[in-house]
Design a protein around this nucleic acid. Structure first.
Lengths: 334, 334
DNA sequence: CGCCCCGATGTAACCGTTTCCACACGCCCG
DNA sequence: CGGGCGTGTGGAAACGGTTACATCGGGGCG
């Protein structure tokens, strides 16, 4: 067995209680004692057993992150933000992906129980309300991008509607009229909100709404690729494509180029998210920036606040602003 | 407090020992008893306390992953592979990033102690041997891409040398002679091995080695961008650029295009990794494929094997084959 | 018929912390 | 001078599981 607190107690000549107090900085201890105990601890290379510790404190110093999947740069940015912030607060991060249904999320939450002090859920499901509603609410939760209004949990959202509205408006001012929209996965809250923003902008501009210009996608590159192929069969051909995320926009550009269609001259293509790679592709992708890593970091802070108040804090509901990023693919600069 | 095994025992009319046996499928129990206990457990919504469990079993059912950073698609692919495999084996994944020095790795390993049953380390440091050598070897470790030969740990490597050799050879057969190489971060084992493969191929082909064609990079897009800018100042100008990873290759292509240099006509650009996005950029990136997710998955399996044998198994040392992927950016198809 | 073994179950020790409570001591104050 | 208080420390009870060991019938076998 490894060295325990008892060994340190014996070696330093004090009781386990005192050793514990020294190591945790709790309770009054003589400086002299502190020194001796510290000495013994380092000499023996004592490392507290985290299981034992969390058994008695019921704190794990770990946060969970539930993601729908791990494809593309979007999610790695989320994790990056989460990990970074968690680390600076002395917390660990437990990730779990491939949760696309309420059932899977509930199951994952179940198995995480007791392993984490709080969980950030990025849920693609339409009605997160229902999902979270009948979960044991013992663990602090923060919902990311769920557009849900659930009592008892914190929620962080991206201003999807506003971003999509602004981008659509931008395309309209550039003179594009037949703007196709490439949707996210069915029921995905982000995707839906972006779609609504697009529709609203069209409507406000008095452009007639054409359902056939709303293409199906699933946020992954290849779906953008296929959607663009399909778009080329539409007559009259759209002069712009607004993809619900950057990955699909990139896939779409690939398909258009293959077909000899010029971007942005023939078809403007824009995305959403501003993943790091967006500026390096050709043409550089115009998109709607979301500070994804920051969102992840914020989620951690909210969670830690909840943990600190034993989940009896006033709930937070924030919306992250987006920013229009105009590069080349929208045709603004030629 | 939550419902404990004692509550289940009381409710079912059996002892905690029997309940435990039923729930873990250990020891002989009457079918009738099993039913009753199961009933009581579900009725009370009993969830075993993982801390208590791991305190007595010293198993956490969690694996750790240490990564140098989380930028780009490469690492998210690793995590994806790890998570997927871990999940199918009922394991959780603790990730931790930004570990670029032996000290940081050691520290992270320290704080993970007791939280995980094993750790996969993707270490960029040159001499992982030294690092891991003086770590407490209680926890099973698997080293990814360290090109290190450390006793007592499993190691998984990518055939960096072979892949780079093949790619360089490919460029040579296409008639390129002044092939620049864009290096990875200083001391990064993958980067170094790829560089050596490049050099070896040049040497074997009798091409004189020109140090000025070896550019500095750090695996991130912007470094590829800047390196390409620099490359354009070299005279005579190189006719090919082999980037040590795809992210940099993509950044480089962006820079070249900005400068009006045609890829691949004027300068061929190739990468390494075959991240998902590689095929969608323009020109589609020729690269060396590595099944990153599979590597992550394999790491988990190795780790679980080690855990199963209480870290007293025969160590594994595997090299993952790479595959030359010829697309457009190398100029083979025009 | 007695013994042994096996199946089924219970009792309690143990895992390594934290923390409540008790206690000793010195000091101040009434 | 005694009681209260604050400081420093120790003893031991949690925390909630797992599991070694004990117990108890009953069936097979010599």
């Amino acid at each position: 067995m490894a060295v325990t607190i008892r060994d340190v107690a014996r070696a330093s000549g004090f009781s386990v209680a005192t050793v514990s107090r020294v190591l945790n900085g709790s309770g009054p201890v003589k400086p002299e004692t502190v020194r001796k105990v510290r000495d013994a601890a380092t000499r023996l290379r004592f490392t507290p057993n985290v299981a034992a510790r969390s058994l008695s404190t019921s704190r794990t110093h770990t946060l969970g992150v539930l993601l729908p999947d791990l494809h593309g740069e979007f999610f790695s940015e989320v994790i990056r933000g989460v990990d970074q912030t968690a680390q600076t607060h002395g917390y660990h991060v437990l990730v779990s992906s491939s949760h696309n249904s309420p059932q899977e999320i509930a199951a994952a939450l179940q198995t995480m129980r007791g392993r984490v002090d709080g969980v950030a859920i990025m849920s693609p499901v339409p009605n997160a309300e229902a999902l979270v509603a009948d979960l044991p609410r013992s663990v602090p939760l923060v919902l990311l991008n769920c557009a849900a209004d659930v009592a008892g949990v914190d929620t962080l959202d991206i201003d999807n509607h506003g971003g999509a509205y602004a981008m659509t408006r931008h395309l309209l001012t550039l003179g594009r009229r037949r703007i196709a929209f490439l949707r996210g996965p069915k029921g995905n809250a982000d995707g839906e909100a972006r779609l609504r923003g697009y529709r609203a902008a069209l409507k406000d501009a008095g452009v007639v709404h054409d359902r056939t210009l709303e293409l199906d996608g699933d946020f992954q590159q290849h779906s953008g690729y296929h959607a663009a192929k399909h778009l080329l069969t539409i007559s009259p051909r759209p002069d712009a494509l607004f993809a619900a995320n950057d990955s699909m926009a990139i896939g779409a550009i690939g398909a258009l180029r293959e077909a000899g269609v010029r971007v942005p001259e023939d078809v403007a293509v824009v995305g959403f998210d501003d993943i790091p790679i967006a500026r390096y592709i050709h043409p550089a992708l115009s998109t709607v920036r979301v500070d994804i890593a920051k969102l992840g970091g914020r989620a951690v802070k909210v969670l830690l606040h909840a943990v600190g108040h034993r989940n009896e804090h006033t709930r937070v509901r924030e919306t992250f602003a987006t920013e229009l990023v105009v590069r080349a693919s929208c045709g603004a600069n030629y």
